[in-house]
């Protein structure tokens, strides 16, 4: 068994990261506080990690999240899947657990609300920066970071599409989508034809058997 100190360190780091981000987005903290008492169990299959996110609230501060490696109380929603699937679930607005192979047990309402909070998370990083370097430099730096983040998001967002086009159109490593779809339709039509032929042969065989008797 691995040293529990490492696991405790992982949980503490994750908990600090989540709550630090929440501290600079009061809107999300307020929404989270409405979910106080709810527990999200996450069972990652690859890498194999179990963790429980316990939502609680502080009277004046709003919601916060505690990360536990074990939880013996009631779990509101339990998710199971790979880390990659979870990342897609958090990033992609149209992603659904079923499509990504993530199994859900318990209330799906908690998952939907947490997804919504995460997607709307708007952390004001300028606030902690301003405390360190002053308002004006923090604003300049924040503007620069936002522009860079926006460019990076656009670049990363278009990268998969551009990559797919290069593979099929430029390098001809895979067929274009239209060609593949036409081929798939032909295969499906052929399969149906074979099924029909098999059914006719079966009818004829039965008829012949009846005549012989």
């Amino acid at each position: 068994m691995s040293d529990p100190t490492f696991r405790a360190g992982f949980d503490a780091t994750l908990e600090t990261a989540i709550n630090t981000a929440l501290r600079y987005d009061p809107g999300s903290r307020a929404r989270l506080s409405k979910l106080a008492g709810k527990v999200l169990g996450v069972n990652l299959t690859a890498p194999a990690i179990n963790l429980f996110l316990v939502i609680d609230d502080e009277d004046d501060e709003g919601g916060y999240v505690e990360v536990h490696s074990r939880w013996s109380g009631e779990v509101t929603t339990e998710l199971s899947g790979s880390a990659l699937a979870f990342l897609q679930l958090l990033r992609n607005r149209d992603a659904t657990p079923a499509r990504l192979g993530v199994t859900v047990r318990g209330s799906s309402a908690l998952l939907a609300e947490l997804q919504s909070i995460l997607r709307d998370l708007d952390v004001d990083w300028e606030e902690p920066l301003a405390k360190l370097i002053g308002d004006a430099p923090a604003h300049q730096l924040g503007t620069g970071i936002r522009m860079a983040a926006s460019w990076l998001k656009d670049a990363l967002g278009s990268a998969p599409k551009a990559g797919a086009e290069a593979v099929s159109e430029e390098w001809r490593m895979t067929p274009p989508q239209a060609q593949f779809e036409a081929f798939a339709e032909d295969v499906a039509g052929f399969a149906q034809g074979v099924d029909r032929l098999e059914a006719r042969i079966e009818i004829l065989r039965r008829r012949l058997d009846g005549e012989e008797k």
Partner: peptide
């Protein structure tokens, strides 16, 4: 600061509940 992690694991193993 590691004493905080040792105590954290203690809490986990305590299985304390509301």
């Amino acid at each position: 600061g590691i004493h905080r992690l040792w105590k954290r694991f203690t809490i986990e193993l305590s299985a304390a509940r509301p």
